[in-house]
């Protein structure tokens, strides 16, 4: 991967929250380079700044200082409107709480980013949303509402939504935080497949070490700084684990 131009390039990034009387320094100068097709896990205890960093990467918030270049664009200095465009076309988001629109079908939830993409007709929108749902294995759940889906299914709808506008970067904020072990592994399986088969760059925030080990690289945060940045030596393979779990279940039966 050497020689490829970085997708994410962050230098001396700081973020200070002004709470009136006190100022909270959430990030105290972070440097990070992420190359295309990397799968980076951000870990660290609560308050370490990993979530703040994630929000800055997702252009949901602005840094107080430092530089952030995404795909060659200096996004730290963009206005609100072009920033919305970056979020729409370059970035896909997956949240811990799924954040699906209630009383709205899975298909329509997945269509949402395309509504703001401009110049995407209703039919194309539907086709692309259906494709994205199929890619996460939910082709038969397209007209279900979120409350008719399990947690794992809801998170897969959210992943389909993140992918529908073909972003270059997938950001996931504690995507398995609300899921049981088995469903977590399934979700990580989808991430690994997207990463390996399509070369999608993924940055994931988690405080669970075993979830972080599905990635290619673990960046640990502490007190608003990067404490360690190491490649994963023994990467876990979600698909193999699912098969093994299925085998155990069969043996038990």
């Amino acid at each position: 991967m050497t020689g490829a131009s970085p997708l994410i390039s962050v230098r001396e990034l700081t973020k200070t929250y002004d709470l009136g009387e006190t100022q909270v320094k959430a990030l105290r100068g972070v440097d990070l380079v992420v190359l295309p097709a990397e799968f980076v896990a951000l870990t660290g205890p609560s308050g370490s700044g990993k979530s703040t960093f994630m929000h800055l990467l997702g252009c949901l918030d602005r840094p107080t200082g430092g530089d952030y270049t995404l795909a060659g664009v200096d996004v730290a200095r963009l206005d609100r409107r072009p920033l919305a465009r970056v979020r729409n076309t370059q970035i896909g988001f997956v949240f811990q709480g799924f954040n699906l629109l209630p009383r709205t079908t899975a298909l329509e939830n997945v269509e949402l980013p395309l509504l703001y993409a401009g110049r995407v007709g209703a039919r194309e929108r539907r086709e692309r949303a259906a494709e994205a749902l199929e890619a996460v294995g939910l082709a038969d759940r397209r007209s279900h509402h979120p409350n008719q889906l399990s947690g794992g299914q809801q998170q897969r709808v959210a992943i389909a939504r993140a992918l529908v506008n073909r972003p270059r970067l997938l950001l996931a904020d504690e995507p398995t935080g609300n899921l049981d072990t088995r469903t977590s592994i399934e979700v990580m399986g989808i991430f690994q497949r997207l990463n390996e088969a399509q070369g999608l760059t993924i940055v994931l925030v988690t405080h669970e070490t075993d979830i972080a080990e599905y990635g290619t690289r673990i960046v640990a945060f502490r007190d608003g700084r990067v404490r360690s940045d190491l490649p994963v030596r023994r990467r876990r393979a979600a698909i193999a684990e699912i098969e093994r779990l299925a085998g155990e279940a069969d043996a038990a039966a």
């Binding site: 465009r85 949402l112 980013p113």
Partner: peptide
């Protein structure tokens, strides 16, 4: 609203 902004809705 937050979600819509996150997936690219403009003001």
């Amino acid at each position: 609203i937050g979600l819509r902004l996150a997936v690219g809705a403009r003001d």
